[in-house]
Design a protein around this nucleic acid. Structure first.
Lengths: 196, 196
DNA sequence: TCCTAATGTTAACGTAGTCAACATTAGGTT
DNA sequence: AACCTAATGTTGACTACGTTAACATTAGGA
């Protein structure tokens, strides 16, 4: 019988992979990336440490799934931004982006750090981060003359993303944190100076 | 006698701290931050692993010194940028910044990641990163009307730094790497769109 | 009903950061 | 010149972690 019911002392967990990702994500959000160990994640899922390797090639593979989850959450935040006028929409996307990053600092960092060594990025990570990029690109394109200059749109999109990404990281872990706190500008001022 | 000569089988190394930083820096540049372990650094300095703790509180303290070294190198790169006209100078600083980051990816990442847990930032790290910020701020200020609006200068500086920082990180470890490579714009185009 | 692949466990290895206790020595004090 | 103390380096050990190998269990189709 296909018990979609789970755990309760069973030898087979029945639904491990998603649970591992969820526990890991919770751990990252609560204690930071540094506190995330496979052993701790396994313990929280009430499973032996090495069980993780039946679902993820190594620690980094798990991290990439968490990162994908992060981009999915970012995309969800994007989805709540109303259509409105192109410029207005781009501005709101920017605010949503920065708000998301500042609300989930450790997750945000992980989203841009997970896909480095060992394996290439997970399909799901590629898909979700691709969706983020697509949303941004469309919003930027809508602000420009419809001349179909895709290179210009790309360049403008990269500039926009660079601006918010850099800002967020400078605030989160950059010298802007442990330096005169009078300089920390608000987001609107930053976004206002961007012209697609 | 104050032998400023060093090592050669002596019990006391005589000059350990700077050597440790140098070896660690070399290791980071050659193999990446992940390959840096206290034990390996100590081995390269021909010293027992725990000797490091006589000069640095913990691993992070050593990392902060390396980060400080990184900012010092960045400042050195800044120093080669000629005075010229304000706008021209700011543009050249931006190019130098991006060039430095792309030439030393692991070191660059470390510069913005080292000062997080445990201890507060080292004085030397504060000093060197402060110098970087000061250079940027002055260059931005020179591009603006001399109305003494320090808040506006700060905001503009943060925007400039955000732009290059975000760009560099997106290229180094962001989704811009494992996505259609047609989109990667050059630096000049990015800097051209910034108005102090 | 049985077989196999999927899934989970136990034991163990190697590496790493860190601490405690001990050894050595540099450099000022008497 | 002899001595003392603080600085500096070493040994040994502990804990935690990622990872692998060998074995155990079970789900689900043939």
């Amino acid at each position: 019988m296909s018990t979609s019911r789970v755990s309760k002392g069973r030898y087979h967990h029945g639904n491990l992979a998603p649970v591992l990702v969820a526990e890991a994500l919770g751990l990252v959000e609560a204690e930071g990336v540094g506190a995330l160990s496979l052993r701790e994640v396994a313990k929280r899922a009430a499973v032996s440490p090495t069980a993780v390797y039946r679902h993820f090639a190594d620690k980094n593979a798990l991290l990439m799934e968490i990162a994908a989850e992060g981009f999915a959450a970012l995309n969800a935040a994007f989805a709540t931004v109303p259509a409105s006028a192109p410029d207005e929409r781009l501005r709101c996307l920017g605010e949503a982006y920065v708000a998301f990053a500042l609300a989930h600092p450790d997750l945000y960092r992980l989203m841009f750090t997970a896909a480095r060594p060992s394996l290439p990025p997970t399909p799901r990570l590629l898909e979700q981060s691709g969706r983020s990029l697509a949303t941004l690109t469309e919003a930027v394109a809508a602000c420009r003359p419809p001349d179909g200059d895709t290179a210009a749109v790309s360049a403008s999109t990269v500039a926009a993303w660079s601006l918010v990404h850099g800002f967020v990281l400078l605030v989160l872990e950059g010298p802007l944190n442990h330096l005169p706190p009078n300089a920390m500008p608000d987001v609107s001022a930053l976004l206002a100076r961007f012209t697609p």
